[in-house]
């Protein structure tokens, strides 16, 4: 086992994959805790899928697909609010429209791109072993900015998520902070696409906080626990996928769900024992 682990880590792409998994767990833990607490999961799903439109256009124009994805993700994160306010579309409908229109644009342009057609599956289902050192640097930068922001403004983030009307009366810049947090959400999504892909990404953001929420109701503890759970799921999934030669993205999600199921069972037993004692 140790021998096979040593073998495993002799490849640079494997080391990259592990570093990326750690960094993504940190970013997804912070952003995921926020979107689960504030019920922005559907919006996050919309942003994730809309980013595929950017990937398609970037391929067509021959530029970096991540840049295209980032542009689409950030624009759709900011755009949903504008769309629902100015054009009087209800917010969930606006998200639904962005969701599928983004996918449609992506497919359209990828098929228009002459010559080599990139492997769609990579973006849809992820492939963490293709993580480059550029990706790692981008993830590291995003993480540093986000960790600093969360450490510095933790109270403001908590209160604006809980009760924005009251937060305004406390002179918290609710609008600006909401935009910044949506920007973080969009960039975390884009940089996580390599790991689990567009279709599976939403579970990476939602399962760890939901698991943590079974044991603690404190927002800061949910963030820390989500990071740990996310990392455990990513590393466990990677090892299993390597040994069984199955796609890593799907395996990571299945490990995360397994952790959730075990946690739920533990919680259930814990409550039962407590009831019996009482």
């Amino acid at each position: 086992m140790l021998n096979s682990l040593a073998n495993f880590f002799q490849y640079q792409f494997v080391v990259n994959a592990f570093v990326a998994a750690l960094l993504i767990a940190v970013a997804a833990g912070m952003v995921g805790s926020y979107i689960v607490a504030k019920r922005l999961v559907f919006l996050s799903g919309g942003i994730t899928h809309a980013s595929f439109g950017g990937i398609g256009i970037a391929y067509f124009l021959g530029v970096n697909p991540l840049a295209g994805a980032a542009a689409f993700a950030v624009l759709s994160a900011f755009g949903v609010e504008a769309l629902s306010q100015r054009m009087a579309v209800r917010e969930d409908s606006a998200i639904g429209i962005l969701w599928s229109v983004g996918m449609a644009i992506g497919i359209f342009f990828i098929y228009l791109t002459p010559g080599y057609s990139p492997n769609l599956m990579t973006f849809l289902f992820g492939s963490i072993l293709t993580v480059s050192s550029t990706d790692i640097w981008l993830l590291l930068t995003l993480n540093m900015v986000m960790v600093a922001f969360f450490l510095l403004f933790y109270r403001s983030i908590l209160y604006l998520a809980f009760d924005p009307d009251f937060a305004k009366t406390q002179r918290i810049p609710v609008k600006t902070f909401s935009y910044i947090l949506k920007g973080f959400l969009a960039l975390t999504i884009v940089l996580s696409i390599r790991m689990v892909g567009i279709i599976l990404l939403i579970s990476l953001l939602t399962i760890p906080p939901s698991t943590a929420n079974l044991f603690t109701k404190r927002f800061n503890q949910i963030i820390f626990a989500s990071i740990a759970i996310g990392f455990l799921g990513a590393v466990g999934g990677l090892l299993i996928s390597y040994n069984m030669n199955v796609p890593s993205g799907a395996t990571i999600i299945m490990v995360l769900v397994a952790i959730f199921a075990v946690a739920k069972l533990l919680r259930f037993l814990f409550v039962k024992i407590k009831l019996r004692r009482a």
């Binding site: 607490a37 908590l158 809980f162 009760d163 929420n213 109701k217 949910i222």
Partner: peptide, 8 residues
């Protein structure tokens, strides 16, 4: 407010 929000 959302009564399920994790805040004490």
């Amino acid at each position: 407010i959302d009564k399920k929000f994790p805040i004490t």
